[in-house]
Amino acid sequence: MDATTKASINLHAVLRNIQDLCEIDKEASQVVAGKKITVKFSVKGCEPMALAFNDGKCKYLRGEALNGEELKGALKLSFSSPEKFNTLIDGGKVVPMFNLLGIPKLGFVLKDFDVITKRLEYYLRPDPSKVDELYADKDYFKANTELLAYTAFHALAEIANYDPVGREIAHRMPDGVINVEIKDGIGVAIAVKDGRLSASIGRDPKPRAKMVFGNLDVVNRVLNGKTDAYSAMGAGLFNISGLIPLLDNMNHLLTLVAKYLG
């Protein structure tokens, strides 16, 4: 497993979810209620990102968005290697380098941010001994599945851009956008341009390929490896259409997602 790829996944697929978590989970939202703080993560070899918290809501920022007003006075956490960042995300103890301006805000990271990441873990990694009970709760099941889908399809883009095998696969993909969607539910648009991928929440108005899951249960089963994609498709549990080489290669990338997130 490539450490830079994993760190990018942790930044742009796992921690990215905090934006949605604050919408879905009252507990997470309450932790940041009335607070205005931006935390920027910089990891060597990876594209940086920031989470801008503002009165119970969170915005994930990347690329050009990192030059905006929200970054002024941000707490900046820097990691000298992807391995160190990954250790932190995996629950290990790593002290990041931080900017002096950020010292008064460290309490947020040490306390509040820790609570938020634990809530994220609650949804993304349900306790195996309680998973049946948790899945019986419709709201939990919906949140778990949607966050899993966001994680998987954002991770897929990072793998396509960083992992050596992922890059080979991505360069075989024609340009265009794939809409991955749940019928009457959420969607992720995956854009391919010159062998690089980017993912965003929502649906593109002019996709070149579509993957439409019949319901949340199918997505959950496929992403948790309980149903293989080919059987699920043959059984009509999800439909594909459009430029299939895009979807075929995306499926190869999804198998790598399982290795990184498994």
Binding site: D228, A229, Y230, S231, G236
Partner: peptide, 28 residues
Amino acid sequence: LYNRALNVIPTGVYGHLGPSNGCAIPVE
């Protein structure tokens, strides 16, 4: 038959004659 096949044959019908690799769009 396909539902029976799914129990005992990987993907029900594998390869280019199957609904997945054969691009049966939509499968119905």
